[in-house]
Amino acid sequence: MLTLIAILVDGLIYSSYLFMVAVGLTVIFGVMKILNVTHGSFYAFGAYMSATLVGIYYQTDLPEFGGFLAIFGAALVVGLFFGVVLERGLLRFLYHRDEHTIVLATFAMFLVLEDVLLMIWGTDPYYATEPMGLLGFIDYEALSYDLYRLSFIALAIVVGLGLWLGLTRTKWGKILLAVIFDREISQAMGINVTVVFLVTFVIGSILGALGGAYIAPTISVSPGIGVEVIVLAFAVVVIGGMGSIPGAMIGSLLVGISRAAAVHKFPEIELFVIYAIMAAVLAFRPEGLFAPAQARKI
């Protein structure tokens, strides 16, 4: 019984982690059809910026809970900066090229940013554990959970709900759906696709950076964290259906819960869980669980 509870809670925490890591990638892919490898850099820069700002914040005498503002501030700063610079400075010149070239350009940008990260922050790791200590932990029989990592769940729900409401209940969301469905017709109908792309890319970047910034207090912020995230986010997005937000949510839950079950019951196969689910989904529903239908071009 206790194991079952642990599987559920651990699974939900990990699912939320996956969702936060993957959602930025899926937003950008959904609208712009760009697999943004730079997503890994956004995550890493978000984490480094968060660790730096949190570190600075706790050297002041300001109220302790303000540390969370530093985290969200870091995500906003990083996301806005890279979102605007990359979209305006690089991607917009490539929209008329084929999509593989764009993926490769983001891959190149990722390589460049990996080293920029080293130039700015060096190789030493950064820690920002204060916010995690702040929230304390709860005990339940032999188990105990820290509230900070439990708060992943809340954040994932807020982000997911926010995006869903934004897409389905606002005018902006409708415009976005129109662009997703047919870019050219939307343009003909008077939608400013340029602005839609810029805004989408910036939102995706902020979400990517938010993943890094919020997770930073639980990890050692050190070189190489961006690479790992790309693969993970990519797997979740493939499983859920590329570009679908509910898909990313279901994909995260599927992987998260299965992984927790594996860790508790068959730790030997933990490494395989994500690949196995991906393989199964690919074999039976290669477009992912929630992929939007594709029109065939004549």
Partner: peptide, 16 residues
Amino acid sequence: QFWQFILGGSLLAIIM
């Protein structure tokens, strides 16, 4: 220490 930068930079230059 910065070979990835050069590799990525050359790739970007070629694409552009």
